[in-house]
Amino acid sequence: MSDDARRRAARYRLEPDAASTGDEAEEATPRARRPEDQALWVDHQVRAAIARGEFDDLPLAGKPLPHIDTAADPDWWLRQFIERENITGVLPEALQLRKDDAVLPDVLDGLRSERVVREAVAEFNRRIVAARRQLQGGPPVVTPLRDIEVEVAAWHERRAARARRLAEAGPADAAPPGAIRRAWDRLRRRG
Rank of each mutant, 00 (worst) to 15 (best):
44 H>K: 07
85 E>C: 12
37 D>S: 12
85 E>R: 14
29 T>I: 13
151 E>V: 00
72 A>Y: 04
160 A>Y: 05
25 A>Y: 12
144 P>T: 01
43 D>M: 13
39 A>V: 07
186 R>P: 02
93 E>Q: 11
27 E>G: 05
8 R>S: 08
120 A>N: 01
157 E>V: 06
4 D>P: 14
76 W>K: 04
148 I>S: 00
173 D>S: 03
70 T>I: 15
155 W>G: 00
36 E>N: 08
32 A>S: 14
50 I>S: 11
99 K>F: 10
142 V>E: 14
118 R>S: 04
79 R>Q: 12
170 G>N: 03
45 Q>Y: 07
153 A>W: 01
159 R>L: 07
97 L>C: 02
51 A>D: 10
93 E>L: 11
104 L>G: 03
132 R>E: 08
53 G>N: 06
22 G>S: 11
191 G>S: 14
104 L>T: 02
28 A>P: 04
5 A>P: 06
39 A>Q: 09
126 R>M: 08
161 A>C: 03
161 A>V: 05
3 D>L: 15
191 G>N: 14
33 R>C: 07
134 Q>G: 08
177 P>Q: 06
176 P>H: 06
29 T>P: 05
111 L>R: 00
98 R>Y: 06
55 F>Q: 08
63 K>E: 14
20 S>T: 13
41 W>L: 00
94 A>V: 05
177 P>I: 03
49 A>Q: 07
150 V>S: 08
21 T>V: 15
189 R>V: 03
11 R>N: 09
2 S>N: 10
101 D>G: 13
9 A>D: 04
139 P>S: 13
14 L>Y: 14
138 G>E: 11
96 Q>V: 06
148 I>R: 01
115 R>E: 09
105 P>R: 01
145 L>T: 04
8 R>L: 11
134 Q>N: 07
93 E>F: 06
7 R>I: 11
71 A>G: 11
102 A>Q: 13
15 E>H: 15
148 I>W: 00
121 V>D: 00
156 H>S: 10
41 W>Q: 08
31 R>E: 11
134 Q>L: 04
88 T>H: 12
109 D>Q: 08
67 H>T: 08
65 L>G: 04
176 P>V: 03
143 T>D: 02
91 L>I: 06
181 R>V: 07
147 D>M: 01
146 R>D: 01
120 A>M: 03
126 R>V: 06
150 V>W: 02
152 V>D: 00
166 L>N: 02
114 E>A: 03
93 E>P: 08
168 E>V: 05
25 A>T: 15
104 L>S: 02
72 A>R: 10
178 G>E: 13
109 D>G: 09
62 G>F: 02
77 W>V: 13
45 Q>M: 10
6 R>K: 12
141 V>H: 05
49 A>E: 08
6 R>L: 12
50 I>R: 14
126 R>L: 09
70 T>S: 15
71 A>K: 14
146 R>I: 03
36 E>D: 11
148 I>M: 01
174 A>E: 09
150 V>Q: 06
189 R>T: 06
135 L>A: 15
176 P>E: 07
171 P>F: 06
73 D>M: 09
13 R>N: 03
119 E>M: 11
160 A>E: 09
157 E>R: 07
